[in-house]
Computed example of a mutant assay.
Amino acid sequence: MPTPTDRSLSLLVAAVLLHDRATDRVLLLQRGPRAKFAQGRWDLPVGKCEPGEAVTDAAVRELLEETGVRVDPADLRLAHVVHGARGVEAPGGYLTVVFAADRWTGEPHNAEPQKHARVAWVPLDAVPADAVAPTAEAVAGYRAGRQEVLLTGW
Rank of each mutant, 00 (worst) to 15 (best):
L95T: 09
Y142P: 08
D43L: 05
Q114N: 13
V60N: 03
L29S: 00
V55R: 02
V119L: 12
V88N: 04
R77C: 11
N110G: 06
A22H: 13
V127Y: 00
T23Q: 12
G92F: 11
T5Q: 09
W154G: 08
T3A: 12
V97D: 06
T67F: 03
Q114L: 11
H116I: 02
E112A: 15
L18D: 02
R21F: 05
R146F: 04
P33D: 06
A38W: 06
A74E: 15
P73Q: 14
R41E: 13
V122W: 00
G93I: 07
G40Y: 07
P128G: 07
S8N: 14
H109Y: 10
V26R: 01
G145W: 09
T135Q: 08
D57W: 04
A58H: 07
A79N: 01
T3D: 09
L9H: 11
G84S: 08
F37N: 11
T105I: 06
L27W: 04
P33I: 05
L76E: 10
A22C: 11
V81R: 08
D125T: 14
R34K: 11
G106H: 05
L11D: 08
A14D: 09
G153Y: 12
M1S: 07
E65A: 02
D102I: 07
G87Y: 03
L17S: 08
A59N: 03
K115A: 06
L28Y: 01
L78Y: 02
L9C: 13
R41Y: 00
G52I: 11
D6Q: 10
W121P: 06
D72N: 15
L11W: 03
G145Y: 13
L78M: 06
L150I: 13
V119H: 02
L27N: 07
T3H: 03
P123G: 14
V98I: 15
A140P: 08
A79T: 02
G153Q: 14
L27K: 08
D57V: 12
Q39R: 14
R143N: 05
V119D: 02
P51M: 01
V127C: 06
G145P: 10
H116C: 06
V16W: 00
Q114Y: 00
W42Q: 00
G106N: 07
T56G: 06
P91K: 10
T135V: 15
R103K: 08
G68W: 01
A90Y: 02
L29F: 00
T5F: 01
L151M: 08
G68Y: 03
S10G: 15
R70E: 13
G68K: 07
A35M: 02
D57A: 15
L18T: 05
V13L: 14
R25G: 14
R31N: 12
V97W: 03
G92A: 13
A74I: 10
F37Y: 10
V97N: 05
R118E: 07
V55S: 13
G145H: 10
D57P: 03
P134L: 12
A79M: 02
T5N: 10
V122N: 01
P2G: 08
T135A: 07
A133G: 10
C49W: 02
A74W: 04
G32M: 11
